[in-house]
Amino acid sequence: MRRASDMAAVAYALLIFGFIFLPVIVLAVFSFQGSQIPVPPFNGPSLKWYGAVLSDGRMLTAIGNSTLVALISSLVSTVLGFLAAYGFARHAVPGGGWLKGLIVAPLSVSYLIIGMGLLITFTRLGIPKSLFAVGLGHVVINLPLCFAIIYSQMGEHHANIERAARDLGASDVQVLTLITAPMLWPALFASFFLSMTFSWDEFIIAFLLTRFETTLPVEIWTLLRSGLSPKANAIGTVVFAISIVLVAVIELTVFRKRAR
């Protein structure tokens, strides 16, 4: 009886793992396709599509752009979110419920609508499309997330330590940078990392708000629109490989240390 349920559990887990990994494996396998079209029969292996990606200057620029936008917008989101979380957690703010509501409101609004609002506003005001505009949009979507994560981690025990520091003569700024931030660094790091992930992968805002200089998802979309090609498989596989390495590094260094 117990045995049977374990077997069922294993089977189910394998099925779900299969479902989750199927497209990724197909993607990776057909990035080594020899011919133009990335569907069976497989007639590789060939590395020519990786060559095509590496010699595509625009694709590489787009990777750089995405990284830059993700880094800066995540940093801004984390800092603004942290400050706001501190303000709300350590002070009684009149009308605080409403103000907190305003800050987290973008969480329940689709990216498409946020992007459309920014596009229409920027167009009306004559602000040109740019990576900077995308960065602004990414802070809008990530700031509430950072705020919510950090705010939820600000416990009373932290407040006591801060009070002690203040009694010993630390200024507000000193408390914030020397006491609160180090105590909360796992939350800060999680916010930053999550924001990075979302910004790096975000399509629609970047699509609406850029022209020539654009981010990787938009560049991949443009590639897909010019026809079926294993090159898209190659770039997808490269991005996946980079992400896995990053996740592994973070897992092995940051979180392992934290666990001890």
């Binding site: 303000g87 229409i120 809008v140």
Partner: peptide, 29 residues
């Protein structure tokens, strides 16, 4: 002993940001 700042210096940036780049575009839309 450092003078205690109120909550506003901490929450104002995030509020202003959300108002400027979320609420206003929404109204424009």
């Amino acid at each position: 002993r450092g003078r205690r700042l109120g909550p506003w210096p901490f929450i104002a940036p995030a509020l202003a940001y959300t108002a400027l780049f979320f609420a206003i575009p929404f109204v424009v839309m």
